[in-house]
Design a protein around this nucleic acid. Structure first.
Lengths: 207, 207
DNA sequence: TAGATTGTTAATCGATTAACAATC
DNA sequence: TAGATTGTTAATCGATTAACAATC
């Protein structure tokens, strides 16, 4: 398979979401034209995007919603389970831990860690919050596919570096910094404040 | 001023962040070349981006960090205060409310609302959580620049629609849906799960 | 078969990069 | 003045859109 562009990859989760909605409305088939109206993109782009992966439709018919949903899910790796631990059990960490839709998408949160003694020992739906120092042994003894970093920049960076040495290959980073490691370590940096700033830009332009 | 492309606007907060870091390290001047190494983009792009706004540098010298930081801040509207209320006082809403850096960027969280009676009346650093039904009177009587939506899709959509009728012009939406209103109402849709799915895609490709 | 709609090629558009003249 | 580095034009690259032949 050719190298798929970032732009295309970024659109896959959105397709997946809209197809999931159609599915829950028991829609069986959809054309690129219908989907384009729904999603506010061009039909051409939809067909072009899917054809990066060989195409999932049938001439004269369109796309079978269930099939397309499943295939995009497979592209995103959602057909395989993912074990995730959360570092930082503050509000954000707990928000992530409790985010309902994860479980039925194959994500399992197996542990929470924090450095704050006031939080260590706290009971959550995902188990008792553990001391941050125990995470390094934890990841050696248990399978961990993803580490979510929900704590400030400095400790997040420090802990992530150590976890890379322990063999962790994927970080979902909410700290206010761009983490980057070797090419075989994947990082998604989420910058909430940047989306807020974009909103402010638009507010200002709107006046 | 010409219409600035989305791509450029999206990069402004990141420039702002890196310049803020240089500032806190007491760096006085920076060249596009130096900044490009720091940020992993091309120097050409940096100069091109800034020249959308007329250019902030000086030939032979580069850019004054403080000046550039301030100017980008102004572009983003960060020189003006923003009053924000949060709808949904669950973990995510409280995470947003407590996010430390907001205050010194001119964001003030003036109220939290929730529909859950168990949360209404709860004390927070931003005041007592109010009943969701009181939000409509609140926004009529108080200035509210931004409403952050931190609750599920269905109630978020319903409340946002009513708030648009009350004159709210900007939403920071964390609900799992793409909100869209008239052109004079700005929305930033944040889809946390989509960034997680992108991470999964990369994990899979990496194997 | 006729109609519908994809898959795919070609054309267009916009964004990024390269190059260099302007100028501090 | 000489060196450095921007501002800006031109070239390149990639992504999006349009068009249409293939085919269900």
């Amino acid at each position: 398979m050719n190298k798929i562009s970032e732009a295309v990859i970024s659109r896959l989760p959105r397709y997946h979401r809209y197809l999931g909605e159609l599915l829950s409305q028991n829609v069986e088939r959809v054309s690129s034209e219908e989907l384009s109206r729904l999603m506010n993109v061009t039909a051409s782009q939809i067909r072009q995007d899917f054809n990066n992966f060989g195409g999932f439709g049938q001439q004269g018919y369109g796309y079978n919603v269930q099939f397309l949903y499943d295939e995009i899910g497979k592209l995103l790796g959602l057909d395989k389970p993912h074990k995730m631990v959360i570092v930082g059990a503050g509000n954000l960490g707990r928000a992530i831990a409790n985010y309902g839709n994860f479980k039925n998408r194959g994500f399992e949160i197996t542990a929470l860690f924090d450095e704050n003694p006031a939080l260590v020992g706290m009971k959550t739906a995902q188990g008792v919050v553990m001391d941050i120092e125990s995470i390094f042994d934890y990841v050696k003894e248990n399978q961990v596919d993803i580490v979510a970093l929900c704590l400030p920049k400095e400790p997040a960076t420090e802990i992530a570096e150590k976890l890379v040495e322990c063999g962790i290959k994927a970080f979902w980073n909410f700290a206010h910094t761009d983490l980057k490691f070797a090419d075989d370590v994947q990082v998604e940096n989420v910058h909430l404040s940047e989306s807020l700033m974009k909103l402010c830009y638009k507010i200002k332009e709107n006046k």
